[in-house]
Design a protein around this nucleic acid. Sequence first.
DNA 1: ACCCAGGCGGGCG
DNA 2: CGCCCGCATGGG
Length: 291
Amino acid sequence: MVYDEIFASRIKVADFSLRHTFESAQPLTFYGHYNNASNTLTYADGQHMLNVGFEGNAESGQIVVASRYANAIEDVKKRFRLEDDMNGMYASVSTDAFMRKAIGKYRGMRVTLNDPWETTVCFIISQFNNVKRIRGIVLKLIGTFGSDIKDDNDRVIGRSFPKSADLLNVTESDFKKIGAGFRARYLAEAAQYCTHNLDLYKLDPNDYEGLKSELTGITGVGDKVADCIALMGYGNMHAFPIDVWVKRTLEKFYFKGRKKSVKELHAFAEKKWGRYAGFAQQYLFYQGMNI
DNA sequence: ACCCAGGCGGGCG
DNA sequence: CGCCCGCATGGG
């Protein structure tokens, strides 16, 4: 019997870009490993290592999945939201010249659907921080507190993301040692809270207000981080995270540079992009950051 | 040297 | 409610 067989398969897909999806500051950006030359992404999904490649262009192509995990295809479909109606989503957020330009430039960028706890940790770390350093801290967290993923010959092929219960004995001081800075206390408390007080896996992904109120109960999770978790940890496309880039971009291109409050901008996004606001946001964010 | 980063908690008016 | 402040750290 062959225990160490690599399961490989292809998925036909339209409107997909692995590179833009990887580079747009989502959880996979922080702990995945992307090879620009081969256009492949390697990451841990739970206890399984997945290797995802893409052949084709932004309009259409094939995703090539290689893994020892039999359910890899389903996980990839879920993670990259391959069942989404991209034509419908693009149609409803192509509201103006700025959006059409961003979509044209980054066509195929997906809003990924990630593990709620992993998303919570990544975006607690993200606050008042930059993408490069967020990735460094997340990788150190996984390297220090995660565990090895091995193949059937006992060879180490990757590291898994620690669950909240794996971090119960990790102190604020320990989190400072991996470079988390003032966020160290938030991480230590979040591990306790999400193990003992709040089961992230029981929240209703479709209840936006409920998600916001439960998630902001975690120390270190405010309005913006809760929106990121609702969007990328639960797939709630209604969520519209407003960070410095989105705020700046909205003010510059929709309000002639005038300062607007986060509250006003939320109302604006709700009216303009409605139930796909989160999808629009990812293009606003990425375009804004790269200008 | 100085400024900034996918903000938040806490205190104040 | 809004506003203001401090906060750790590393890269440009």
